[in-house]
Design a protein around this nucleic acid. Structure first.
Length: 757
DNA sequence: AGCACGCCGACT
DNA sequence: GTCGGCGTGCTC
C-alpha cells in the first residue's frame, strides 16, 4: 500500500535495550532527521520514567505493540558508528536467552563504565602525569621527613627514569595520593605534564618486532618446542580457519604458554585479533609480562584493577582494531573485536570464570559460543581440566591435546595421604608432618602449608555455658582474629571487638575453637622459633605491594616456611619448596557439593605444581581422616587423568553434570517464608507442565539460610536434555513476570551452576 | 533497579 | 500540624 494519507504513514520505531532488570525491550520514536544514521549497536539517550537513560539500539522497525501515542521520541544519538557488530548482538542475545537474564543488563555488561554513562568514544592520546621540577629533582627526601607520604612520593619520582609518576603509579602508591601530590605541587617540587600515550598499533611493526626478538636471543624467545608442543601447535595451526575447540591438557610446567604464543603469532600474521582470558590477572603477572615482552604494542590488558579511563582506552583500542591482543579476565569476554580470529582461555577449569551474581554467565561456555558464531578456533588450557571439558572431548565435541612432559625434567612430586585419626596433634599438625617439615628445613629447603581458613579460630565458644559467638545477620559463627583483637563474619564482613567475657553467663572463659591460618602461624612459630615464616592470606596481603614483598621473601629464600590459603595455589612457582602439605584435606570432602572432590583434586594438583625442581623431587602430604577415600586414592596413586575418568564414571552413574543439565532458581527476601512460597509456586507451575524429563529438587533453604540479613531459598532443576530445560525455563520466566508472588522476593536464575550455594 | 506515590508514627 | 518510614507499581 502506498502511504499517502497521514494516518497510514508508519513512524520509525526503535526497539532498544535499557539496563533495567526487565525482560523486554522498549520502543521509541526515531526523529525525522539524525546527524548519524540509526544502526543497531549504537547508543542512544532516551527519556525513561522521570529521568533519562542510555539505551542500546537493537532493531529498527515500523511496528510497535504499543499505540504510537504512548511512544516517546529519543533524546539523542550518541554514536556515529555502531559499537557492536551484528555478530556481537547475536552473541549478546544468545547469552541473554541462555542465562535468562535481561538483555539490557547483558548489553550493559559489554561496555566499560564510562560508555555506559554515555561518555564519548574519542580515545585520549595524552595522559597527564606529574613530573619533578628542577627543584624537586635535587631536593633530598630527608627534608620531607615530617610528611612521610610526601617523602615516599618524592623518592618514588626520583627513582623513576623519567622523574615522573603516572596516575596508575599513584593509585598503586596509595589510595589517598591526592593530598601528597597537592602538597608537593604547592611546594614547587612537582608539576603536571601531558604525555602522549597509547600509540596506535601498526601491524607492520609486529613483523619487525618478532624479527628483533629472534635476534635478541633472550631465553624466553628461543625456547624450542619439544615434540609434544610442536604437534599441538601443528594440530591447531592446521585448523585455524573454522570453529574448533581444543582442550590443551598440559601438566604444570609443560609449556602451554609457549604453545599459545606460537599460535598467536600465526593469527597476528593473518592480521586477526586474539582474545586471551585468564582467571584473575593480578595473580598471573608473569603471564602478562611474558605477553607484553613478546607482543608489546599489540596487546591491551583489561581487568578490574584498572581505572575507568584505562579500561575505556583498552576497550576502544581493541574495538576499533588498533590493538590485536586483548588479555583480560571474565569481564573482558564480550569486548567487541572486529577481526577476532582466536580465543584462548587459560586455566579453563577455574570456577572464577563463572560469574556468581547478576548475569551469571560462564566465560568458558560463552567463549565457545562466541567462537562458534564467528567460525573461529578456541583453545581451552588447563593442567587439571574440568570434567565438563573432558566429557566434551569424550563426546568428540572438543579435540583433546596433551602435554605430558615437564619442561626442565622437573619430576612430578610424590603424593601421600597422611592418616591423622587418633594421632597426637600439635595445633592441627601431626607428629609425622612436623617430622617431615623438620627434615625439609634441615636440608635448607622450603615448606609450603595450606589451610583454606583465615583467622585464628572459626568459633568462639564459652567453656562455661556453651554460648557461641554468632553473626546477627547471617547463619554463621564469628571468626576470631586474634592479631587485631576482633571477631568477624566472613560472609557479610561485620566485625566487633573480641570480647573477653561471655555475654550469656558473664564468665571470662571464652575459648577459640578450631583452626585458622593465624593460629597455625602461632603454632609454627612456637615449634620453629628460629625459622622465618610468611603467612599469605587475605588478611596479610590486603595492603598494596604486600603480596609481592612476601613473594620476594619466598623467592630470595629469606622465608622458609610459607603458610597460606588457596590464594597461594595460583600462578607462583617456588623452586626451592620441596614439601607441600594440606593441613586439612577433609574440608574438601565433606562439602554438600558433588563438585567438592573435583575442586580438591584440582587444588592438590595445582599445589603439587608449586613444588619441586629438576634435581629434587617434591613431596605433597595430605592430612586426612579419610585415608581410604577412593577418589582421593585414585588421584594420588594414579594422577589427575585417572581421577577424572573415575569421577566422570561416577557422575554418569549418578546422572549428574556433565551428563545432565542443571539450573538453580534462587529467591531471597528480608522475611523468612516468602522465598519458599515463591519457589513453591514455581514448582506448581512446573508440575502443571507434566514434563517427566525434568527433575525438581526443593525448594529448600539455602545452605546458609540467612545471610547479610536476608533469607534465601533455592530450587534445583535437572534434566537430561539441555533444550528441554531451556524451554521450561523460558516458559517459567515468562509466567513469573505476571505472578504477584514474584514481586515480594528477589529471584535469580543460575544456569549451569558451579556452586550449589 | 530506580523512583514516584501513598498511607501511618514521633517530632519542630 | 509535618517529616519520613518502606510497601506496591511503573517504566516505551
Amino acid at each position: 500500500m502506498t502511504a499517502k494519507s497521514p494516518q497510514s504513514v508508519k513512524p520509525t520505531v526503535l526497539h532498544v535495550a535499557i539496563p533495567v532488570p526487565l525482560f523486554r525491550l522498549f520502543d521509541y520514536l526515531a526523529p525525522s532527521f539524525t546527524e548519524y544514521p540509526l544502526k543497531p549497536g549504537i547508543r542512544l539517550e532516551v527519556p525513561f520514567g522521570n529521568g533519562k537513560k542510555i539505551a542500546y539500539l537493537i532493531k529498527i522497525d515500523h511496528e510497535s505493540t504499543l499505540a504510537e501515542s504512548k511512544l516517546k521520541p529519543i533524546l539523542s544519538v550518541l554514536d556515529k558508528e555502531p559499537l557492536l557488530s551484528l555478530n556481537d548482538l547475536t552473541l549478546i542475545d544468545w547469552a541473554s536467552r541462555y542465562y535468562h537474564h535481561p538483555l539490557g543488563d547483558v548489553i550493559g555488561s559489554v561496555f566499560p563504565a564510562l560508555l555506559r554513562q554515555g561518555k564519548s568514544t574519542v580515545i585520549e592520546t595524552h595522559e597527564v602525569v606529574y613530573a619533578l621540577t628542577p627543584h624537586g629533582k635535587t631536593l633530598s627526601p630527608e627534608d620531607l621527613k615530617r610528611s612521610p607520604k610526601q617523602q615516599a612520593l618524592l623518592t618514588l619520582c626520583q627513582h623513576h627514569p623519567l622523574n615522573v609518576v603516572s596516575q596508575t603509579d599513584l593509585v598503586n602508591f596509595s589510595k589517598h595520593w591526592r593530598p601528597a601530590v597537592k602538597a608537593l605541587i604547592a611546594k614547587g617540587l612537582l608539576h603536571t605534564v601531558s604525555l602522549q600515550v597509547n600509540k596506535p598499533y601498526q601491524p607492520d611493526k609486529l613483523a619487525h618486532k618478532t624479527e628483533s626478538i629472534k635476534s635478541e636471543g633472550t631465553k624466553n624467545y628461543t625456547l624450542k618446542l619439544n615434540l609434544e608442543q610442536q604437534s599441538c601447535v601443528d594440530a591447531i595451526n592446521s585448523a585455524l580457519s573454522g570453529f574448533n575447540v581444543f582442550l590443551l591438557d598440559g601438566v604444570t610446567g609443560s609449556g602451554k604458554t609457549e604453545v599459545y604464543l606460537r599460535i598467536i603469532t600465526t593469527i597476528l600474521a593473518r592480521n586477526q585479533q586474539v582474545l586471551v582470558l585468564v582467571p584473575e590477572i593480578n595473580l598471573t603477572p608473569q603471564l602478562e609480562a611474558r605477553f607484553q615482552s613478546r607482543f608489546a604494542d599489540a596487546i591491551a590488558v583489561s581487568h578490574s584493577q584498572l581505572t575507568d579511563k584505562q579500561r575505556l582506552q583498552a576497550w576502544l583500542s581493541i574495538q576499533q582494531g588498533n590493538q590485536s591482543i586483548l588479555l583480560g579476565t571474565r569481564s573482558a569476554l564480550l569486548t567487541p573485536m572486529p577481526n577476532l580470529g582466536l580465543i584462548i582461555l587459560d586455566e579453563e577449569h577455574d570456577p572464577s570464570y563463572k560469574q556468581q551474581e547478576g548475569f551469571r554467565f560462564s566465560a568458558r561456555d560463552v567463549a565457545v559460543m562466541r567462537a562458534k558464531l564467528l567460525n573461529i578456533p578456541v583453545i581451552l588450557g588447563s593442567a587439571t581440566p574440568s570434567l565438563e571439558s573432558l566429557a566434551n572431548c569424550e563426546a568428540g565435541r572438543y579435540r583433546h591435546l596433551m602435554l605430558t612432559e615437564r619442561a626442565g625434567e622437573a619430576a612430578q612430586p610424590d603424593m601421600l595421604l597422611l592418616d591423622i585419626r587418633n594421632k597426637k596433634m600439635h595445633g592441627g599438625l601431626s607428629e609425622a608432618l612436623l617430622t617431615e617439615i623438620r627434615k625439609t628445613l634441615m636440608q635448607n629447603e622450603q615448606v609450603l602449608l595450606f589451610l583454606n581458613r583465615r583467622g585464628f579460630a572459626p568459633t568462639l565458644i564459652c567453656h562455661h555455658c556453651g554460648w557461641v559467638a554468632r553473626c546477627r545477620s547471617c547463619d554463621a559463627n564469628l571468626v576470631v582474629h586474634q592479631q587485631d583483637r576482633r571477631m568477624r563474619c566472613h560472609h557479610c564482613g561485620k566485625e566487633d571487638y573480641l570480647i573477653q567475657i561471655c555475654p550469656a553467663c558473664q564468665h571470662p572463659e571464652l575459648t577459640p575453637l578450631g583452626l585458622g591460618t593465624e593460629r597455625i602461624e602461632d603454632v609454627l612459630k612456637d615449634i620453629f622459633p628460629e625459622q622465618t615464616l610468611v603467612r599469605l592470606d587475605r588478611d596479610t596481603t590486603q595492603r598494596k605491594g604486600k603480596l609481592q614483598s612476601y613473594l620476594d621473601q619466598i623467592n630470595d629464600g629469606s622465608a622458609n616456611i610459607i603458610l597460606g590459603t588457596q590464594m597461594l595455589a595460583k600462578g607462583h612457582h617456588f623452586p626451592n619448596v620441596t614439601l607441600v602439605a594440606l593441613i586439612d584435606a577433609d574440608s574438601g570432602l565433606f562439602g554438600l557439593d558433588y563438585r567438592a572432590t573435583e575442586r580438591l583434586a584440582q587444588l592438590v594438583m595445582q599445589v603439587a605444581g608449586r613444588a619441586g625442581r629438576a634435581e629434587k623431587k617434591g613431596r605433597v602430604i595430605l592430612q586426612t581422616r579419610q585415608p581410604e577415600h577412593p577418589l582421593l586414592n585414585t588421584l594420588i596413586t594414579q594422577g589427575y587423568r585417572q581421577f577424572a575418568i573415575t569421577a566422570l564414571a561416577e557422575r554418569r552413574q549418578a546422572k549428574l553434570p556433565p551428563y545432565s543439565y542443571q539450573a538453580i532458581w534462587r529467591a531471597q527476601a528480608n522475611k523468612p517464608g516468602l522465598p519458599f512460597a515463591f519457589l513453591q509456586s514455581v514448582v506448581e507451575l512446573i508440575h502443571r507442565q507434566k514434563n517427566p524429563q525434568i527433575a525438581v529438587f526443593g525448594p529448600v533453604p539455602a545452605p546458609m539460610e540467612k545471610r547479610a540479613g536476608v533469607y534465601r531459598c533455592q530450587l534445583l532443576l535437572q534434566s537430561k536434555s539441555r533444550s528441554n530445560l531451556q524451554t521450561l525455563l523460558a516458559f517459567l520466566v515468562e509466567k513469573v513476570q505476571t505472578s504477584p508472588d514474584a514481586k515480594k522476593v528477589r529471584w535469580s536464575l543460575d544456569v549451569d551452576p558451579v556452586d550449589l550455594y
